[in-house]
Computed example of a mutant assay.
Amino acid sequence: MNSFPKLIAFDADDTLWANQPLFDDAEEELRLLLKQFGSDEQINQTLIDVQTENLRLMGYGAKGFMLSMIEAAIRLTDGAVRGTQIQQIIDLGKELLRFPINLIDGVEEVLETLSAEHELMVLTKGDLLDQESKLARSGVGQYFSHVEIVSEKHEAAYRRILSRYHVEPADFLMIGNSLKSDILPVVNIGGQAIYVPYHTTWHFERMAETGHPNGYVQVESIRDVLGLLQALR
């Protein structure tokens, strides 16, 4: 980072609030529900396989995850899964659509401080209704001037958004917990990024941490963002 950004964007899930732990809990419930049909490893792998097949069609979010859990259950049981078990999976999915939002420690302090002088953006991927609902339930929506919800976070998506806001990549800062989605695509188009790792990461977002000279800054806590930006200013 070598210049103060004109536009500061935050990822949402597992950057502003806890999300993946809820999905991890749902997967554990699925393993318990289907334990007579396979080992934990078999159930995990079947769900990963089904999600891999479905991501391009269904995208990200709780609804696609719920349908993938149902399909995994059908596959694991050779179609013998009962209606009551499918209803339990549907109930798990519904809980993922309405769980109380728990902000990550320090988030509101950072947003309140930065929004007093700068326009902030939420830039997240997933289901539109689901992400809008989470932002509304979070209680921090008032700190953001812009909200962008996309189906995928790749270089082309970032370029489109920056073009729409008339911001050069060098004047853009992305803050998030995913190297794959939040950090490297932004660095690759010439933007700035702050990587804030979270203690658990979705299987499809995992990748080896790699040094990227002059590309991004890694911090331990989102509170560290304030110190970095104050130093730049």
Rank of each mutant, 00 (worst) to 15 (best):
E29D: 08
A12L: 12
L162S: 06
Y158K: 09
A157C: 12
L47H: 06
L135R: 02
F65D: 00
E220C: 05
E108A: 01
F172W: 01
S133V: 02
Y60C: 04
L103E: 03
S138R: 01
Y195R: 10
N188R: 14
G59M: 00
H146Q: 14
L32M: 13
R56N: 13
E27R: 09
F37Q: 05
L16M: 14
S133E: 12
Q230E: 15
E95Q: 14
E117H: 09
S115C: 01
G215W: 15
A12E: 12
Q87V: 13
L123E: 13
E112W: 00
N102K: 11
V150S: 08
L55Q: 03
N54H: 08
R206D: 14
R75L: 11
L226M: 06
G176M: 12
Y195H: 15
L226K: 02
A62T: 01
K6P: 01
E117S: 10
V219S: 12
G83P: 00
E109M: 02
I222A: 08
G126L: 11
M121V: 08
Q87M: 15
G83N: 15
A231W: 09
V217Y: 15
I70H: 00
M66T: 14
I70C: 07
A116R: 07
E27M: 06
G139C: 04
P213Y: 09
R82C: 03
H212V: 14
Q85N: 08
R137S: 10
Q85C: 01
G139S: 05
T124K: 07
N188A: 13
L7M: 11
H146A: 02
L7A: 03
L114M: 03
R31M: 13
G83S: 15
S68I: 06
Q42H: 10
L162W: 09
M174Y: 12
Y158S: 08
H118N: 11
K125H: 04
I194E: 12
N177C: 06
K35C: 07
G191E: 11
V219D: 14
